[in-house]
């Protein structure tokens, strides 16, 4: 389907065709394969669906919706500590992640990696950290450390290492080499080249990535409570389980407000730094 861009001019008997016949057939076949995969996937999903519930969903939605209004405003005071915890999880988690991600990124970048083995190891850290969702990290850590804010913080940290390190090492690989070359030409050692030639070039990215990830982590840390890793998710889970819908809507509004504020803060800080 991507080959749509390959506009091919072929004039035979004054009939203009966008593609050659062979290409056209190939495209049709890939569409067909794609379509059958989607159909099959839909089949699998729908087999496992109880359609009665689905048909009932609009009524349910209206019902739950009406029970959520009006939000229970007085509940907000009980949410102050959970929100404070949520913000701490996100912030400290981001700090932990950045402290680890910066050296990992330098090991993973082709132009600064000390050795190929080190580079592969760093890339492995990045991939495994990225592949596992923070909720799964939290699930594991709650087992090890017990429920609480600590497990959540470390979970956020572990998940963010890969994300931050990936963006960082890509930007390290894109630096202007001549600036480093100029420092090398003065007789500077490897570490000095790093401090003077490379670090100043990637410092804005380091700051930007940290803020960006913090913004994401605020969202992510709102759900960690579902598995007992602290934060406002705990209250959300409890309220849903006890069908306290007015509390649920209050919590959702608080999350909404927190996310908006964090987005505003990160935009401000980014503007000030870069």
């Amino acid at each position: 389907m991507g080959a749509m861009m390959a506009v091919l001019h072929k004039e035979t008997d004054f009939v203009w065709r966008r593609r050659t016949t062979k290409k056209q057939v190939l495209i049709w076949i890939s569409w067909l394969i794609g379509l059958s995969i989607v159909m099959f996937a839909w089949n699998v999903i729908s087999e496992k669906t109880i359609w009665f519930f689905v048909q009932d969903a609009p009524r349910q939605a209206a019902d739950i919706g009406s029970r959520m209004i009006p939000p229970k405003w007085s509940y907000i005071f009980e949410l102050i500590t959970p929100i404070w915890d949520t913000i701490n999880i996100a912030t400290l988690g981001t700090v932990i992640a950045m402290v680890i991600a910066v050296p990992v990124a330098f090991c993973a970048a082709r132009n600064t990696s000390p050795h190929t083995t080190v580079r592969l190891f760093a890339l492995f850290i990045i991939v495994s950290s990225r592949s596992v969702n923070s909720l799964i990290w939290a699930l594991m850590l709650v087992f090890i450390l017990g429920p609480g804010v600590l497990a959540g913080t470390i979970a956020i940290g572990l998940r963010s290492i890969g994300f931050c390190a990936k963006l960082l090492y890509e930007s390290i690989e894109e630096i202007d080499e001549t600036q480093v070359e100029a420092i090398r030409a003065t007789g500077a050692g490897n570490l000095q080249q790093m401090i003077y030639g490379i670090l100043p070039q990637v410092l804005p990215t380091i700051a930007g990535v940290g803020i960006y990830r913090w913004d994401i982590n605020i969202r992510e840390s709102t759900i960690l409570g579902l598995v007992g890793a602290g934060g406002i998710g705990l209250q959300l889970n409890g309220s849903i389980n006890t069908l306290a819908w007015t509390q649920v809507s209050t919590i959702l509004l608080v999350i909404l407000a927190t996310v908006f504020v964090s987005e505003w803060v990160s935009a401000k800080v980014r503007g000030a730094i870069i």
Partner: peptide, 8 residues
């Protein structure tokens, strides 16, 4: 909550 447990 709306559609029941499962992949849907």
């Amino acid at each position: 909550k709306l559609f029941g447990f499962g992949p849907f």
